[in-house]
Design a protein around this nucleic acid. Sequence first.
DNA 1: AACCAGGACGTGA
DNA 2: TCACGTCATGGT
Length: 238
Amino acid sequence: MIYKFLSFILIMNSIQNMYNILLESYGKQGWWPLTSITENKGYHPGRYYLPRTHGEIFEVYIGAILTQATNWKTVEKAIKNLKELDALSPEKLIITDRTSVIDAIKSTGYYNQKYKRLLAISEYYLKLGERKPTRHELLGIDGIGKETADSILLYAYRDPVFVVDAYTIRILENHKLIKKKEKYESVQKLFSDSIPRDFKVYQEFHALLVEHAKRYYIKTTPKEKKKKIIFDPLLMEI
DNA sequence: AACCAGGACGTGA
DNA sequence: TCACGTCATGGT
């Protein structure tokens, strides 16, 4: 029993170390990217007061839906298209004709689903008014699962909710900090137990894990078919 | 030219 | 509960 306790302490320490090293290596990431920020492709490191307007907050919702199972570059294009269409607000999105919106978001794939989901969050966002959503409410909306809900809470509202994505799982598995098929909430709790309850840390850590995974956890050449992971330099350090 | 992307959801076992 | 198929375009 005491053995288990000690190993848990070590794991917590590794998580904290991982954050320190990633931050030191890559710097502040400045998520969530916003079109109102013209420089640095919308990223705004250190400006933790963002987003602040309804336009910026709603853009996080839109991006969170559109980025599901696709890369951000295609989402960037889609949001830009929506802006040119003048459909980048819940009110406008609802009244804009379906084919125009679908055409705008086509690059992100799954456009039929995503169109429906954009409508759903638009309706919800309007009903919300000035109120802040709860996780439970968000999860009740079509197309919003755990990761999307937590992304919205963390990046649109600055709630200290850790976002667990596929990359996070992959990295932690590789470092043997979790077992395979560890559950979402379980991984989330591990982070909550290991790092200070500070939304800024949560935002940066998640973004840093994504950055790290993009560098070392994606297959690079068709040759390395069997090897998903190249080599993670962090394995030596933590 | 496969293989994968900042997932979610429905279904059948 | 859980493993698996589906949704679809674009980047590497």
